[in-house]
Design a protein around this nucleic acid. Structure first.
Lengths: 151, 151
DNA sequence: GTTATACATTTGTATATACAATTGTTGTAT
DNA sequence: ATACAACAATTGTATATACAAATGTATAAC
């Protein structure tokens, strides 16, 4: 990833704004690729993994598709089909809401939980490796700045 | 985008590492969506736009597909087909390399340059808006930290 | 109760992405 | 010269993403 510095410095007089945008694109891509490597053996995409973690966070309470979609990183992707794929792998279950039959309730299965738990260590480790070039203070500083951008 | 802070703070005891990863995913997504809004009227995707800017940076010298792919953010995408789409829009031209007929040489057309120049202002403006929550010093600090991550 | 409207999900379709396999070209060893 | 490996791009295929349209359900107005 040394190339990035070259790109940014070689491009004549790039603004700090453009440098930041390029850096964010690159680090985002690198993180996704690295995490995906570890998800592949379980036949999971990043968003599928994400949705499973969202469901785990509910501690048993099911979520309907809209709730899931709101919490997803990529709002535009197709939640029905994503959940279908998790369903096929038996990682989630789906029932029609008794109170409002338009809604479906999705919750994570034991198998889903077990898979997530298996993945936790390796994903944590991957993320730690990615942020390893920064010390604690720098990492906190980065979070502060990113949070400002996200508001 | 206020939700992000909620997600990060609500998730019990999230590590600084995980908070950084989530923030990067979210800001990346937000930037892409915003930029895409402005590219749509020209029927361009982010990567197509990127490739056109790479070609413009060559000041007339053509690049072959491998060179382009190396410089692309997403290395795994299909450069042949991406260039095909730019070709259809007459934004680039393609010739077979005389010295090595396995290679193809891609360069940007006048129409491509004109389109890029039209887009420059609006994209610059969009990027400025995105980094607006940070002052100059904070932006430089962010770049320093992101560059460290990217190495 | 019927009609209209809003809601929640699903389905359809076009495009994009990831990766493997194939085609055609060049260089090299014999 | 021929055979073989390496190279550069293209094609095939499965999956993912973006967005519009359609389906089925609930709520509200009259």
């Amino acid at each position: 990833m040394k190339e990035l510095e070259k790109i940014i410095s070689s491009t004549s007089n790039i603004s700090d704004t453009k440098a930041a945008v390029i850096s964010i694109f690159h680090i985002n891509n690198y993180i996704k690729e690295t995490i995906l490597t570890h998800l592949k053996p379980h036949d999971l995409s990043i968003e599928q993994f994400n949705v499973m973690r969202i469901l785990r966070g509910q501690k048993g309470n099911p979520l309907n598709l809209q709730d899931i979609q709101e919490r997803m990183i990529n709002k535009m992707s197709n939640t029905t089909r994503l959940v279908d794929k998790l369903l096929k792998k038996r990682f989630v279950k789906r029932t029609i809401c008794k109170q409002n039959r338009r809604k479906v309730e999705i919750s994570i299965t034991e198998l889903g939980l077990k898979t997530l738990n298996d993945l936790d260590a390796v994903i944590d480790n991957t993320e730690q490796n990615i942020t390893a070039p920064l010390n604690n203070e720098e990492l906190k500083q980065l979070n502060k700045l990113l949070l400002k951008l996200n508001n």
